[in-house]
Design a protein around this nucleic acid. Structure first.
Length: 324
DNA sequence: GCCCCCCGCCGCCACC
DNA sequence: ATGGTGGCGGCGGGGG
């Protein structure tokens, strides 16, 4: 069992802490060997958090009992790091254990020199300050996260979830990572707002599917029969269905629709063509079908999605943390 | 543009 | 483990 420590101090960022807890701290009896997670602090007494919330975390003096450390945030203007924390985090890293930072958490790792010569990122609003303070760190722009298997930095709150999902994939495989991701994404969808437009966090694909998926993407605008999809993967139809489900936790058809939706969204964001044209381009036979799936997945109509994108000026950037 | 209804087809999965 | 089958439900298409 991997033991997780989420390290907080006074002025703990509530949202980032919540993201870490959601990923690693929820009981998930359906998975054996799920993480055991503590929110820990080196300070005494209740900690202040966002919006006047107070927290009681587990007081510790060392981190030896843990295997994975999460820094959900850290003051960006704090040059002095308490000796106990510096020693504990350095020794944690020296043992080859994994450390993840969310948002401003990268400042702690950089202060300790753990990121020297490595790639790192942080929330965009701290980017200039970070680059100036740590020129020896290779700052990466416009990514959701960077992760080398040992040290990870994520750009902001929601990107911390993407990084966490990647770590869960490392530990528990695609299937579990997709299930966890799916649950997070689905609840995000229901709350509305921009968060409903997040993309599927786990996009890695096992080798046995790459050919078939590439073929499907290339011919997305034409009808794709599941029998030929299976044939492209060189599997019997039954095996294809079974492996597809266990790998992506999606049926082949559901995957196809999600890819067609992604294509349609890209065209809507670019603002070119009418709905019928976009429906044809993305492989939905007609506008009605596109609208149906669009509403089903995103809760709004294609036209109002386009309007929202236009009003914010520019289309969303794809971050390399989502690169395939 | 959106939401019904109906119908025919086919994708999916329990079962073998 | 893989592969075949049948039933069912969901999807696309057409009409209102």
């Amino acid at each position: 069992v991997t033991r997780v420590a989420i390290l907080v101090r006074d002025d703990a960022p509530l949202f980032e802490l919540g993201c870490a807890v959601e990923l690693f701290g929820l009981p998930r009896p359906e998975y054996p060997d799920w993480y055991r997670c503590d929110v820990v602090t080196f300070e005494r007494g209740p900690l202040r958090s966002t919006a006047g919330v107070q927290l009681l975390a587990k007081a510790v003096k060392r981190l030896d009992a843990y295997d994975l450390l999460i820094i959900p945030g850290w003051p960006t203007d704090l040059d002095l790091i308490p000796g106990a924390i510096a020693r504990a985090v350095r020794s944690f890293h020296a043992q080859g254990k994994r450390i993840l930072s969310f948002c401003s958490g990268a400042f702690l790792l950089a202060h300790l020199g753990l990121l020297d010569g490595r790639e790192a990122t942080t929330h965009w609003r701290y980017a200039d300050k970070f680059k100036k303070a740590f020129p020896q760190v290779r700052y990466v722009e416009n990514v959701l996260y960077v992760y080398d298997g040992t040290l990870g930095c994520s750009a902001g709150s929601a990107a911390g979830i993407d990084l966490g999902i990647e770590v869960i994939r490392q530990d528990h495989g695609y299937r579990v990572a997709n299930q966890v991701a799916r649950r997070l994404v689905m609840s995000a969808q229901r709350r509305g707002g921009q968060s409903q437009f997040v993309e599927t966090p786990v996009q890695q694909r096992p080798a046995q599917f790459t050919q078939a998926l590439d073929w499907a993407l290339k011919h997305l605008s034409t009808p794709i029969a599941m029998n030929s999809f299976a044939a492209r993967a060189k599997m019997s139809r039954r095996t294809f269905d079974r492996k597809f489900r266990s790998t992506f936790n999606l049926s082949p058809q559901e995957w196809l629709v999600s890819q067609r939706l992604a294509a349609a969204r890209a065209l809507l964001e670019q603002g070119k063509g009418d709905i019928e044209w976009i429906a044809a381009q993305s492989g939905f036979g007609n506008g009605t079908t596109l609208r149906h799936h669009f509403r089903d997945a995103l809760g709004i109509t294609p036209t109002s999605y386009r309007a929202q994108c236009m009003s914010t000026g520019k289309s969303r950037k794809r971050a390399s943390g989502l690169r395939q």
